[in-house]
């Protein structure tokens, strides 16, 4: 069954995303979460999620580094990475592209946009 990993150092954001993605969990998707980049890499290696929501600004290891590791590892490079970034920071956009990010969503995000994207990536139809 599909797995989605949520990575953010802010527990409220993790909680929010977990709640937003609850309908998918009800449809058999496994939701995982990690509070920093290091743990995220461990979880990715162990669980091989289909999709990762990745915050940029995190202690220990930031989102770009996580993304770079994932995209440079042959076994992991197909994982769909959605970067959660702050709007208007041009540098972030450039870094995201350089790191191989598949999609980015600016904070504060729109719930329907998240749901739409997950449906698209996991080829599901959950509302």
């Amino acid at each position: 069954m599909p797995k989605i990993l949520i990575v953010d150092d802010d527990s409220l954001i993790r909680e929010l995303l977990l709640q937003v993605l609850e309908p998918f969990e009800e449809n058999g998707v496994t939701l995982l979460s990690a509070q920093n980049g290091v743990i995220a890499v461990e979880v990715i290696n162990k669980e091989l999620p289909d999709m990762v929501f990745l915050d940029v600004m995190m202690p220990k290891m930031n989102g770009f580094e996580v993304c770079r590791i994932v995209k440079s590892t042959a076994a992991l490079k197909d994982i769909y990475i959605v970067m959660l970034t702050a709007k208007g920071q041009e540098v972030d956009k450039q870094n995201a592209t350089a790191a191989g990010v598949d999609y980015y969503i600016t904070k504060p995000f729109n719930i329907s946009e998240i749901i739409k994207k997950v449906n698209e990536v996991l080829n599901m139809n959950v509302s």
Binding site: D10, L12, I13, L16, L17, Q19, V20, M57, A86, K87, Q89, K107, P108, F109, I111
Partner: peptide
Amino acid sequence: ISTVSHELRTPLTSVLGFTGIIKS
């Protein structure tokens, strides 16, 4: 301003996100 706006986004994301969830 860049830092502040960035820092404001996180709580704002929670506020808007949770409100949206409550509403739905």
